[in-house]
Design a binder for these strands. Structure first.
Length: 112
DNA sequence: AAGGTGACAGTTT
DNA sequence: TAAACTGCCACCT
């Protein structure tokens, strides 16, 4: 929104770096931003993500349980699951299957 | 300027 | 064993 690079922009940047078919958690992003305690902030950043111009693959961000907690914030509930399935991610009962295998940790993958 | 909010995470009862 | 509570930090009104 503002030209200033806020915490949200950092979150968006990391989320946009998530490879297709992969997912990450709020805590992982928060930790990568050196604000592990602000995992809630990451979630809230996603709340504004839908208004961000470059599309933010928020559907690739789930809680550490692999649950699509924020699916209700998408245009239509289920859209998040469809987006994940479109990338080859299996979602069952709002839960990501093989979560640990598809998990993409920016602090590990992106920091190299 | 101050208070309230939030798509979590970790700990405890 | 499962469920509930608190802590947390940055943004918004």
């Amino acid at each position: 929104m503002q030209g200033d690079i806020s915490f949200f922009e950092k979150v968006y940047a990391v989320v946009r770096e998530i490879p297709p078919g992969r997912i990450t958690t709020y805590g992982a992003i928060a930790k990568y931003l050196a604000t592990a305690g602000s995992a809630r902030m990451v979630g809230w950043a996603m709340n504004q993500a839908h208004g961000c111009c470059p599309f933010v693959p928020a559907h690739r961000v789930v809680n550490r349980l692999g649950l699509l907690t924020g699916k209700h914030h998408f245009g239509h509930p289920g859209a998040m699951q469809e987006l994940l399935e479109a990338e080859g991610i299996v979602v069952k009962n709002d839960q990501v299957m093989d979560f640990a295998r598809l998990f993409w940790d920016p602090a590990t993958e992106l920091r190299l």
